[in-house]
Design a protein around this nucleic acid. Structure first.
Lengths: 359, 359
DNA sequence: AACGCTTATCTAAACGTTTAGTTAAACGTT
DNA sequence: AACGTTTAACTAAACGTTTAGATAAGCGTT
């Protein structure tokens, strides 16, 4: 591939001049500039970003570290990031960690070596390394979707507490009190918050939920399936269920179908995450919808801002006196989810009110 | 961030020595090596891949250029690529072009500048630039999912002809003859192939399909919706429909639901692509399932092979005499799709046989 | 004619590695 | 004691850019 040297030679100028016309970083005689441009064209010259990066210390690469791009929840986040990244001249690296901290560690190392300009991460719990790594590498980082207990940094998340609150509240408003709750591991901030939201809704309504109706499991749809079955194996049968994640709801929904539960007659169902299939099933599901694409966009915008004014916030870098005036406060965005009421929820029917006398 | 110089200084050796212990590229006194390793640890040294790349001319970056990561068809492909890439020490850049050739062009430029080691691309039709770009940049490339008429390169695709054949054949076997076909733009190899497959199935069965029952549209679900409606607006009503893509089937399925068509009693439905929701709807759909994850894996493996023996195949680089003995022949993998028979298809019922006499 | 200013271009150092080639010490042979 | 061989480490060029500073020509003042 042609180098700047080739271009310079062809145009009969020094390489510095070529650099100046490319970057418009100094005045260049229009005539000369034209010759240079022509040479660039003819040689199909692509400036070597590697060499550029080495001297400018900027790679124009953003990285995203998530659980799994295959998850319909994460894909739009990544897409949102990509769209704003591209607009700003960045390109994005995608990293899947499958909620596995050793994969995370390896990726962070790799990203550090590649000297990516920034990182957007949906953190897995229990990464103590994370803090150390992030700090020492000094890569501008914004958290997306989940918080990390260990590290303070910019954050874009949904208002999960509110989302869950709205879901449960909706069911309560419809007269349900025996409400089953299926949720992921509460070590993760999203689920912890959603659980709080559920509790608040119950409390406000003066309803004390049967503790046997609360199920917490893992991330996997299978776990959702499992929990759904358990919910109806207990003494108190719920008349409504709130499933606290899209992935879990896939499994749970399958379980409900297998059990032949009529929705919404026998079971009112509210689900977190408004993925593709929620409107395709019959009846279409009432969901708490997160603005995933926008979440990605916001995260990327904040990250770019951080990169521009390269002042890592206080908690990551100990306050150096000289820096202070420029420091941007830590951003913490909370996107309001929407409750989309469809046909999987309905008023509690007198006939099916009790659960104990169930089928 | 610490540099190799810092490490050398701390360990009391030259930078060359440090390089040797890192890369194990020369014998180093074990004692010295230990000192170096310790220095690396203490400084949390991450070798600067930028600098490495500049001299080794290898970035350890693979890139994937697809329509949209948000599409449940592409996500597993990317995941397959990522998994084999990571195992080989590569990291992957994801690029969405939204089937837009100008975005493609910009991305190719960008990737060229970043000097990515390889490219996996699902080509959009009508990119004449593609050929020129790919050739001049000399980036090892493998096509995935779709062929490009313009450029010859390694290719991993589904046997789309076979997939469609199986789908139609299945419907014919069930006694259907008025079979509607909904398919994407036949300028794209996938759809062209699928159309051929449909035709072959009809031909073999001695059935001449009503031309009004063949609809071709765009990529978008809306287009699927549109075509589904049109299909039942015509004079000949189909008793079965074959939808030739997952994205289109989303729209089509919605249309069928709106029209209140009983599946499979009034309409037997076969759909391409076995995405998440096909088993969640009632009844679960009969689908032609592509092995997308595996497709990504294979593509990445072939690409890595190409990168290793860096012999760009004949069509891209004119045959130089010296190279010949090493050249690997162009790979062309065709993954067989599976017909998964579920409950959306059934034997043609006598009562609904005709279509002309409407509902 | 000498001076300073502007404009256009060039020179060369720097970025952080890899690696071929060199040096130097240590050791075994003769 | 002189020599070759092995081992271990060093020196310096190269990779392809950016960019500060130097140079030099052209021009308007005085």
């Amino acid at each position: 591939m042609a180098t700047i040297k080739d271009v310079a030679q062809k145009a009969g100028v020094s390489i510095a001049t070529v650099s100046y016309v490319i970057n418009k970083s100094r005045r260049v005689n229009p005539e000369t500039a034209k010759r240079v441009c022509q040479a660039i064209q003819e040689l199909n010259y692509h400036p070597n970003r590697i060499a550029q990066s080495l001297v400018t210390k900027s790679t124009q690469i953003l990285s995203v570290l998530i659980s799994d791009i295959t998850d319909p929840f994460f894909a739009p986040i990544v897409r949102g990031i990509e769209d704003v990244a591209v607009k700003a001249g960045y390109i994005v690296m995608v990293c899947n960690n499958d909620e596995d901290s050793s994969k995370t560690k390896r990726y962070l190392d790799s990203l550090a070596q590649h000297r990516v300009d920034g990182l957007i991460i949906s953190p897995t719990s229990g990464i103590e390394d994370l803090k150390a790594n992030l700090e020492e590498m000094g890569i501008p980082t914004v958290f997306v979707n989940r918080r990390s207990a260990e590290v303070e940094a910019d954050l874009v998340e949904s208002d999960n507490e509110l989302g869950a609150y709205m879901g449960i509240r909706h069911l309560l408003d419809l007269g349900h009190t025996k409400i089953g709750t299926i949720i992921g591991p509460t070590t993760v901030s999203t689920y912890a918050d959603r659980l709080s939201g559920c509790k608040r809704a119950f409390q406000e309504a003066g309803v004390t939920p049967d503790p046997s109706l609360l199920k917490t499991g893992s991330f996997h749809p299978d776990s959702g399936y499992q929990m759904a079955k358990e919910l109806f194996a207990g003494a108190t049968k719920p008349t409504a269920v709130f499933v606290g994640s899209g992935r879990l709801s896939r499994g749970a929904y399958q379980a409900f179908q297998e059990m032949g539960l009529g929705i919404p007659e026998q079971l009112s169902l509210v689900t977190f995450d408004d993925t593709e299939w929620t409107t395709l099933v019959t009846p279409p599901l009432t969901t708490v919808s997160q603005h995933t694409y926008q979440m990605g966009q916001m995260a990327a915008e904040i990250l770019l801002e951080r990169i521009k004014k390269r002042n890592t916030p206080p908690p990551l870098w100990p306050d150096e006196e000289g820096q202070k005036p420029e420091a941007i406060p830590l951003q913490h965005l909370k996107l309001k989810p929407d409750l989309i009421v469809r046909s999987s929820t309905s008023h509690l029917q007198e006939g099916v009110k009790g659960g104990e006398c169930g089928e």
